[in-house]
C-alpha cells in the first residue's frame, strides 16, 4: 500500500512538472491548417510573451460544449469559435465581456467585426465566404441546387447540421429551391429524401479535404478558410460562383469567464488582430483579414474573402436566428436525414 502511494505521488509529480515550467495560455481553435498557424502565430507569440501555448483543436460546436462542461473551472482561457456559438455561450453567461482598451488593434477592424454579438462579448478576427468546392474536370456547378441534382448523386457531401457550415448550406439551398422562404424545414425534408445519394455529412473542413483528395466526394459546400487544402492538390478543384451568390460568416474570439489568465489572453488576441499577424495569416491563404489595414497582393486576395465589397455581398445568417432555430433544425435533421 505504501508503495502504491509512492507510485501515485510520482505519477502526480510527473503530471505537475509541465505546469510549473512557464506561464501557459490554453487556447481552443479550429483544427485546420495548424502547421501554418504555428509558423504565422503560435511560434512568434511564444517568443514575444515568453510563455507556452497549449492548443486544443476541434470544430466549433464540440469545443463550445467542452467550455460549457468545464465552466466551473475553465480549462480553456481563450477560444476562437463561430459567432453563433459565441452568442450561445454569452447567453449562458460562460464568457466575459472584452475590455476593448486592452486591444490596441481594435479600431483597425472592419465595423462588422468590432462588436459582432453585442456587449463586447466577442471580436471578429476573420470573415469567410462559403460556397461549393468541386472537381471542375468532372462536373459543372451553377447553383446551390446542383448539390441535390442527379449529376452529383452518390458523390456529394454536405456539412453536418451541428457544424458552422450546416445552417449556411440550408440557407442557400432554401434560396435555390424555395426562392429564400426563410423556413428551412422543406429543405431538410428534401435532404432527407436524397440522403442515400449523399456520401456522408462531414463535421470538420479537414475531414472534407480528406474525402475530396481521396476522390470519395467531388463536390461539397465549404468555408473559404479551408481552400488552401484544395488549391494545392494535384486534383483539379474549383470554387463555385453559384447564381444565388455565396454565403458568409465570421469567426470570433472569446474570453472564458474567470479563467485567471486574462492578461496573457488579451496579449494573444491583440497580437492576432495586429496588421502584422493578420497579413501573415492572409498570405498563408488561411484566414481572411478582419483588420482593414491589411494589404495583400491580387493573387493572395483572389484566394481569400478580402475587401469590403466582397464581404458586403455575402449572404449572412444572423447568429440570433441560428440559435433560435438550431434545436428545431437538429431535431428534424436527426429524424429525417441521418436515420
Amino acid at each position: 500500500m505504501k508503495k502504491l502511494m509512492l507510485m501515485l505521488v510520482s505519477a502526480a509529480a510527473l503530471t505537475a512538472h509541465s505546469a510549473m515550467a512557464k506561464d501557459t495560455l490554453t487556447i481552443s481553435v479550429y483544427s485546420f491548417a495548424q502547421d501554418a498557424y504555428k509558423k504565422a502565430l503560435y511560434d512568434p507569440f511564444e517568443e514575444i510573451c515568453d510563455c507556452e501555448l497549449v492548443i486544443e483543436t476541434g470544430n466549433s460546436v464540440e469545443r463550445m460544449a467542452k467550455i460549457e462542461a468545464n465552466a466551473a473551472d475553465p480549462v480553456i482561457d481563450m477560444a476562437v469559435i463561430s459567432s453563433h456559438d459565441a452568442l450561445s455561450l454569452a447567453q449562458k453567461g460562460l464568457i466575459a465581456p472584452l475590455d476593448i482598451s486592452k486591444l490596441s488593434n481594435h479600431a483597425k477592424l472592419y465595423p462588422a467585426a468590432q462588436d459582432p454579438i453585442g456587449n463586447n462579448m466577442a471580436v471578429g478576427y476573420t470573415f469567410y465566404a462559403s460556397s461549393i468546392v468541386y472537381r471542375d474536370d468532372l462536373v459543372k456547378i451553377k447553383s446551390w441546387g446542383d448539390l441535390l441534382g442527379k449529376d452529383l448523386a452518390g458523390q456529394v457531401s454536405l456539412p453536418n447540421i451541428t457544424g458552422t457550415q450546416g445552417p449556411l448550406t440550408l440557407m442557400m439551398l432554401d434560396k435555390a429551391l424555395n426562392g429564400g422562404s426563410g423556413d428551412f424545414s422543406s429543405v431538410i425534408a428534401k435532404i432527407g429524401e436524397d440522403a442515400d445519394d449523399i456520401v456522408t455529412f462531414y463535421s470538420r473542413s479537414s475531414e472534407l479535404a480528406q474525402l475530396m483528395n481521396q476522390e470519395e466526394v467531388i463536390a461539397a459546400p465549404l468555408g473559404r478558410f479551408a481552400w488552401s487544402r484544395f488549391k494545392n492538390s494535384p486534383l483539379s478543384f474549383a470554387w463555385a460562383e453559384p447564381e444565388e451568390g455565396q454565403a458568409g460568416g465570421m469567426n470570433v474570439m472569446i474570453m472564458t469567464k474567470g479563467n485567471g489568465n486574462e492578461e496573457l489572453a488579451y496579449k494573444l488576441m491583440d497580437y492576432w488582430l495586429s496588421t502584422e499577424v493578420q497579413t501573415r495569416i492572409a498570405e498563408a491563404l488561411i484566414d481572411s483579414p478582419a483588420n482593414k489595414d491589411v494589404v495583400v497582393s491580387d493573387e493572395v486576395a483572389d484566394n481569400l474573402t478580402y475587401g469590403a465589397d466582397l464581404i458586403n455581398s455575402l449572404n449572412i445568417l444572423s447568429p440570433a436566428e441560428i440559435i433560435a432555430n438550431r434545436d428545431a433544425w437538429v431535431e428534424q435533421w436527426n429524424a429525417e436525414v441521418i436515420k
Partner: peptide, 8 residues
C-alpha cells in the same frame, strides 16, 4: 485519430 482528421 485527431491527426487523421486534420491531415490525410
Amino acid at each position: 485519430l485527431a491527426y487523421m482528421e486534420i491531415t490525410y
